[in-house]
Design a protein around this nucleic acid. Structure first.
Length: 481
RNA sequence: GGCCCCGUGGUCAAGAGGCCUAAGACAUCGCCCUUUCACGGCGGUAACUCGGGUUCGAAUCCCGACGGGGUCACCA
């Protein structure tokens, strides 16, 4: 049978990295098995609806290289793929269950339920619906229905025995039936609950492998009872542990910075995000850690998904990002880094291609770039203590002397190229009987005002241009006087 | 609280009874390279939650405790 998996997000805002990883695993599993990946939008909760959220889901998945075979925008033979457009199809199924005795009408009001819930709590008990309305006579039910009394439809779950199922990652699961509550299938407004819609949709859409968060582990028996009541085949289950923000909290919509779009805005690459995310909760069983999407598909094996939650480590993501940037085609890097350069260097006449070369292996995340190159646009104010460097054997006095020595050398350079600067400056230092560092350190401080810079004194001098270089050397000399 | 799941270094993790004196990666620390920083190279610190079993032998199996998470909605 052809594998069919689905990603079924609610369009409640942005896609956070935990959700993205769920989508990824579903996608990888489908592709690995030459199956279909289906996108279904679960928007039955109109209160949580956020304008444009569906588009964000599309954009994010596509951006990450995940394409779906069926979905709201691409169609498919099992549509519609937006749950709100399917709302009329659930009630008949619920009625069918009432007919067969697997469900029943319930006229208890929310208020009554709430009272009983609180009473139970006061007694220190766990509230469980007592099947009150299950015992209404057929006539009475009909009378209420005819009178237009509001109702919900509840599942009639067994109270004795136990229900078991097999989960591909968690193994065999068994739950006592008395822990099963008679969950609501159809709400008072006629809309299905998430639980019910899910079962119906997954079946109607031919989903063979239900992949979802492990928070559904304990409600799965109730779903299975539903499948059985309909005489439908129960799908395979692949429950996945959550991605955590820390030991106690999982990544959620509340953690604003866990949104995919925020990471992209900061300058993280989608390839790095996907690569990192794939490895939180799963591993290939080999030493390989860099994976393209195709390689992930090739290596993915659901049985290697871990059972325990994984904490999201932005450090490691950042490392992956830095690695991806280093391995990037230089032309692409230049293109991507240009807007970040522009933030602080627009109109300053700095040679971007050369600066990009110097910056590429030093860039971990693009948003660090402006602060690293801003000094080229404007010399920052700095303290002369920077001139003192133990290893270079420099202090303020030595720096001043060496700067005075090298200034005329620089001034005498005709063709201001890196090669010429190097070939003039290095011999001059040797001629003066000094170590390279003794001159180049103060020079770099003078023209950058920074303890660390992308590139050394010569590269920076070239980027700055002769005029600006001399101007900054003079400025340094003034500071040292 | 009932039920369910999980428990290897700070983090991700390998490990499916002897190959474990417990891999690898990130982070961290040190050294080397180097005109700074970074990259790179080398090395260090750092873990089987605890207690009982089973076994000739347990990180691996069983039980219990403890810890963490989930779930018990007319939310999804």
């Amino acid at each position: 049978m052809k594998v069919r998996t689905r990603f079924a997000p609610s369009p409640t805002g942005f896609l956070h990295l935990g959700g993205l990883r769920s989508a990824l695993y579903g996608y990888l599993f489908a592709r690995k098995n030459n199956g279909s990946f289906i996108l279904r939008i679960e928007d039955t909760d109109q209160e949580r609806y956020v304008e444009g959220a569906t588009q964000v889901i599309y954009d994010t998945l596509r951006d990450c290289g995940m394409n779906w075979d069926e979905g709201p925008d691409v169609g498919g033979e099992y549509g519609p793929y937006i749950q709100s457009e399917r709302k009329d199809l659930y009630l008949p199924y619920a009625r069918q269950l009432v007919e067969s005795g697997h469900a029943y009408y319930c006229f208890c009001t929310k208020e009554e339920l709430e009272e009983r819930r609180q009473a139970a709590e006061a007694r220190g008990e766990v509230f469980k619906y007592d099947k009150h309305c299950l015992h209404l006579s057929k006539e009475e039910v009909q009378r209420k229905l005819d009178a237009g009394v509001p109702y919900v439809i509840r599942q009639n779950a067994p109270t004795e025995g136990e229900t078991s199922y097999h989960d591909i990652v968690f193994g065999d699961m068994t739950f006592p039936n008395d822990s099963l509550d008679d969950m609501v299938l159809i709400k008072q407004d006629g809309m299905p609950t998430y639980n019910f819609a899910n079962v119906i949709d997954d079946h109607l859409m031919g989903i063979t492998h239900v992949m979802r968060g492990m928070e559904y582990l304990s409600s799965t028996p109730k779903y299975n009872l539903l499948y059985q009541a309909f005489g439908w085949e129960i799908p395979q289950y692949i429950h996945m542990p959550p991605v955590m923000r820390d030991e106690h909290h999982k990544l959620s919509k509340r953690d604003g910075d866990a949104y995919y779009s925020d990471f992209i805005a900061k300058g993280y690459l989608s390839e790095a995000i996907i690569n990192y995310l794939a490895l939180v909760g799963w591993n290939p069983g080999t030493e390989q850690e860099f994976f393209s999407m195709d390689e992930l598909i090739e290596a993915f094996d659901v049985t290697r998904i871990n059972k325990s939650p994984g904490i999201f480590d932005v450090n490691k993501l950042t490392w992956f990002n830095a690695e991806y940037i280093r391995r990037m085609d230089p032309a692409r890097y230049l293109e991507m880094v240009t807007p970040w350069f522009d933030q602080v260097l627009a109109g300053k006449g700095i040679n971007y291609p050369r600066l990009a070369e110097l910056m590429q292996e030093r860039t971990e995340v693009f948003n660090q770039v402006p602060a690293m190159v801003a000094f080229l646009g404007e010399l920052p104010d700095y303290d002369i203590s920077l001139y003192t460097h133990k290893k270079m054997k420099t202090d303020a006095a030595i720096s001043k002397a060496n700067l005075e020595m090298i200034r005329p050398v620089l001034e005498g350079i005709g063709d201001w190229t890196e090669q010429n600067i190097h070939d003039t400056v290095i011999p001059a230092i040797a001629a003066a009987g000094l170590k390279n560092g003794a001159v180049l350190w103060p020079l770099r401080i003078a023209i950058s005002g920074l303890a660390s810079t992308p590139g050394g004194a010569i590269e920076i001098a070239w980027l700055l241009g002769k005029e600006e270089t001399l101007r900054r050397v003079d400025d340094g000399l003034r500071r040292l006087s």
